[in-house]
Amino acid sequence: MIDALTLGQLRTFVAIAEAGGFRAGAARLRRAQSAVSHAVASLEQELGIALFDRDGRRPVLTPAGTALLEDARAVLLKVDTMRARAQGVSQGLELELSVIVDTLFPLPLACAALQAVHARYPSVRVQLQVAPLGGPLDALLEGRCSVAITVGNDLHDPRVKKEPLTTVPIVPVVSSSHRLGASLRARKRLSADDIGEHLQIVLIDPTPLSARRDFNVLSPRTWRVGTQEAKQALIEAGVGWGRLPLWTVETALRDARLLRLVASNLGPAGEAREQAYVAHRRDRVLGPAGRAFREEVLCRV
């Protein structure tokens, strides 16, 4: 009977599917492999279908298993969300608030929100980190932060709730000493092909969330860097061109150390706007300090 299904069976099924095998799934759950195998066999018996094809060296989801995997994940997410809400009813003030901010987001805005949180809850320690691309989302999923600020609409996960903040202007720039800079000073009209002939400086995603994917890369020749600071330093040194958030380059643009690149597929007037979000796990209730940070950052944009 379906009523005889247990959450433990569903968690075991999902763990094996995500880990890619019974042994790896057992290690993730910290259970004996025999117990994991028994749980899946019992689940298959209750459902009346085979979830895994065990003929090969590694178990492979059957078509039925693939279809039911998302259902199992949805059930577990609902249960975990209910448990988190129940725990939050009596939850006290957290000892530490961990926040990760997308490297594109204006850091002064996040710091102002944290200053307000500190004024309300001075005993709460704060851990603030900045990470590019999939870093904030990955930290939320792995439980390494309570609240994150993400930028862009390319990466999503149903376990994460995202609330829109402001849009962040992103501008393609190049050093005034670069060959492209010389063309701009000569008022030469540049096409996307002209710009794409030159080396582009691109951020590396420190997570597997965007593996083998490039965002806004025009040039076939690229240098990859791990931080926004390194990217900007290389661009200002004249090594190549790249996209940077406007708030980080306003002074360099004003001083003419950097120049804006304008082409039709680089956004209107050479500017693109990326949506920013404040995000947290749906299945984990924020403590008072986490809620305060969320409220402060929402009201400041």
Rank of each mutant, 00 (worst) to 15 (best):
T103S: 15
F52N: 03
R54Y: 04
Q275A: 11
A113V: 10
A116K: 15
Q87G: 09
V14I: 09
V171P: 02
V285E: 14
V75S: 04
L109C: 07
Q275K: 05
T207Y: 01
Q115A: 15
V75F: 02
K162Q: 15
P136W: 09
P208E: 00
W241C: 06
Q127V: 15
S98H: 12
V126E: 13
A116N: 14
A131L: 11
W247P: 08
R213M: 12
S146A: 13
T167S: 14
F22R: 08
S34K: 04
R282V: 12
G242R: 05
R257S: 15
R243C: 14
P108Y: 12
A289G: 06
A64C: 02
L190I: 00
G56M: 05
S176L: 04
R260M: 06
P164S: 11
R294M: 12
G270I: 01
T227N: 00
A41K: 14
R243K: 11
V297D: 08
C299S: 14
L140M: 05
G290K: 07
G240P: 03
T81P: 00
E142L: 13
M1R: 13
A113T: 12
A41G: 04
P172S: 08
T166K: 09
A289F: 03
L253R: 01
G181I: 03
R159F: 05
T6E: 14
L93N: 09
A64F: 02
S264Y: 07
A112N: 12
R83G: 00
A50P: 00
E94S: 09
R30C: 09
A39E: 10
R144S: 09
V117A: 12
E163V: 12
S123C: 11
R281N: 07
R57Q: 11
P245S: 08
S175R: 05
I16L: 15
E18M: 13
G267T: 02
L234Y: 09
L298C: 04
V174A: 05
A233R: 10
H118M: 14
D255N: 14
L244K: 00
L51H: 03
L141E: 03
L128S: 09
I170R: 01
N216Y: 14
T103H: 15
A32Y: 02
E295A: 15
R185C: 02
V130M: 12
L244Q: 08
I195S: 00
V171G: 01
R187K: 14
L298N: 04
V75I: 12
G20N: 09
E96Q: 14
R260G: 09
A292F: 04
R294C: 13
R73C: 04
D53T: 01
R300Q: 15
R159N: 08
V36G: 06
V130D: 09
S210E: 11
T166V: 10
R187E: 14
A74D: 10
S219Q: 03
R291H: 05
A279M: 00
E44K: 05
A72P: 00
D255R: 15
